[in-house]
Design a protein around this nucleic acid. Structure first.
Lengths: 357, 357
DNA sequence: AAATTTTATGTAAACGTTTAGATTTTTGTT
DNA sequence: AACAAAAATCTAAACGTTTACATAAAATTT
């Protein structure tokens, strides 16, 4: 006769080489202590005699015990996990932000769940709900819908939020943005100072902060230098490569072509440059160019692209910093808005306009 | 006198606007049923009268109840989450693979945790342990250490693994790779057929499958066409941009310069091209080039870069597919090895070698 | 209308931790 | 050696689900 008692599980399975997940009980039994003491050792809470600790550690090793996060979370009500929501993981901007977040998170022993919404507010809502179910301690988000009503759920649950790159309208959150207005202003100003007056902009969606603000910076620069805004030179894009491509074609088709183009983001810049090449619209000489976001291709083109460059890594680092403080201090902290300055990188794609002199 | 009984929590907090997380109990009480029935509704298990269900749904809405994944996991022993481990999120290869994984995962209602190891096996081990603690249902990994001993933990716990892009030595796992040997072979063959004989390779780390296999393909092609391998033309790199840059400088310093270069990955290609430009070593005319991985800059250079292109998205999709099957059927499935064919994209960076005729 | 089957709901025991508070052991003091 | 104080350890009760199994209610058959 052969009884398989629970206590024997470990040994029997050990022999049979099947998988069995040992728990804190098994460890306690093997080390001849109570589970409370094991728990203390696992969590480094001290107050355990050295030799007892060693015995426990040995048992843990012997059994290959790994603690169960779900059970722990249940008691502790914290997961040491943060959720990150981005609209498009394929946009090279986000992996860099992510790298900054992860780096800082790891330092503080936090883990990171990443999900991408494909710019869909519906997907975003699902993700948010799932993050709540899982009990993330906080969320860093570049939202697909700045209105932000769908994020109120998080707020109701008391889960801290940090908005990155796009702000959130319907309630106050810690935010870390790039000064889009300033960046765009500087870029367009640069073109103006080179003598350009027919300056086109390929806009991002006007439903997003970056899209709007970059357009704003463009308008401000024109205004400041008394150049009237010409509607024909304002083309709407959607931050995707294709839209940059099409926008450029439209501009080229104009009778009175612009002498300079400002593109509002990285992917549209790529589309734009592709179009320029195909149209044989000579970059630098026939048309000057400056883009928001430093892109890989920028320094490989001839002439090299002048760009407004954003501090992606820093953006991520700061975002985590803010989130972590918020997790620790909850509401006893005013809401903070960071505005990082972008950097104008002047290369060779903006030439002096040929004048009549 | 004022007693704050647990049952009152919801109502009182409702008035005071503090956060309180309602649980299944609260829902049950409000809907006047037992928690078992609520559970049944939450999980769509059927066997609940319609009007009861409606009452429960209403209660759920009213309270803003969201179920607790930790508690659920504890009973169910599954998380519907998979972990993805990549060596370097900043390498544009991985976000694309990730996009493929995520897409398929979402379809099957799985969520994805992403972590990046920075090519550190130590970090990787930590991540693995953390994933186990959290009870991921499976892991997709491009490991920083192909030896794979540190992954045995996963195996011991019965957690399915799929290796992507780099295989794992110490035990059998489902694997989805790109045919690196073939890709490299085709690339080098292309150079040879253009008349090149002095063909250099910028190698990846020989500790990784892709590094080794691409070197192998290179050697095989030379051998097949009876071109002796010249050690001076074999430069070791580490898959990073800087190493591509340095390698190119070394090649240029040679008395007997190669007439063609094969670069083993995307980032080294970028470094290489940068160096070529600085050294004024004319791409196409003075030195032909072909690289593993299609890079953004490829089509913007003049001449455009010929490359071996990998199906990143498909890689991710298949990886999830394999993992999902494994999660469902565990060991009742043979281990599978996928080998996707890369595609040779011939553009303009490989010119016919000038002959004496 | 009673008996039987089917359907709906409820009860209670896990799951694997953490953590007050109780208890035991050790150490130090007299 | 007896006692008090300090340190180490233990007991037991959560945490919020899921799920066998028990029970009650409704539908069906006789």
């Amino acid at each position: 006769m052969f009884f398989l008692s629970k206590n024997l599980n470990v040994y029997i399975l050990g022999v049979l080489k099947m998988e069995y997940k040992p728990n804190i009980q098994d460890v306690a039994k093997l080390a001849n202590v109570s589970i409370a003491t094991v728990s203390r050792v696992i969590n480094n809470q001290g107050g355990v005699r050295k030799e007892t600790e060693e015995r426990i550690l040995k048992a843990i090793n012997e059994l290959g015990y790994i603690r169960n996060a779900a059970a722990r979370t249940m008691k502790r009500k914290e997961t040491n996990t943060i959720g990150v929501i981005v609209p498009d993981i394929k946009n090279p901007f986000f992996p860099l932000v992510m790298a900054g977040i992860e780096q800082k998170a790891r330092e503080k022993q936090y883990f990171t769940i990443l999900s991408s919404t494909n710019e869909s507010p519906i997907v975003e809502k699902e993700i948010v709900k799932n993050f709540i179910e899982r009990g993330v301690d906080g969320v860093i988000i570049t939202t697909a819908n700045e209105n932000g009503d769908h994020l109120k759920l998080l707020q109701e649950q008391g889960i801290p939020i940090v908005a990155v790159d796009r702000s959130i309208k319907s309630f106050e959150v810690d935010t870390v943005l790039v000064d889009n207005v300033k960046g765009a202003y500087q870029a367009v100003q640069h073109l103006i100072l080179q003598g350009h007056e027919k300056i086109a902009i390929i806009c991002g969606p006007q439903t997003t902060t970056p899209g709007r603000d970059r357009f704003l910076g463009y308008k401000k620069a024109l205004e400041n230098y008394n150049i009237p805004l010409d509607e024909r030179y304002v083309i709407q894009g959607d931050f995707g490569e294709q839209s940059g491509y099409l926008a450029t074609q439209k501009l080229f088709a104009l009778d009175d072509k612009p002498t300079a183009i400002f593109s509002s983001n990285n992917l549209m810049t790529i589309g734009c440059v592709k179009a320029l090449e195909e149209l044989n619209w000579k970059l630098g000489s026939e048309v000057s160019f400056i883009g928001f976001d430093d892109v890989d291709i920028a320094t490989f083109l001839n002439p090299k692209l002048s760009v407004v460059s954003r501090p992606m890594y820093a953006l991520g680092e700061i975002a985590f910093q803010l989130l972590h403080e918020r997790i620790c201090f909850k509401e006893n902290l005013p809401k903070r808005k960071y505005l990082l300055s972008p950097e104008l990188k002047i290369r060779q794609s903006c030439r002096l306009v040929k004048t009549l002199f």
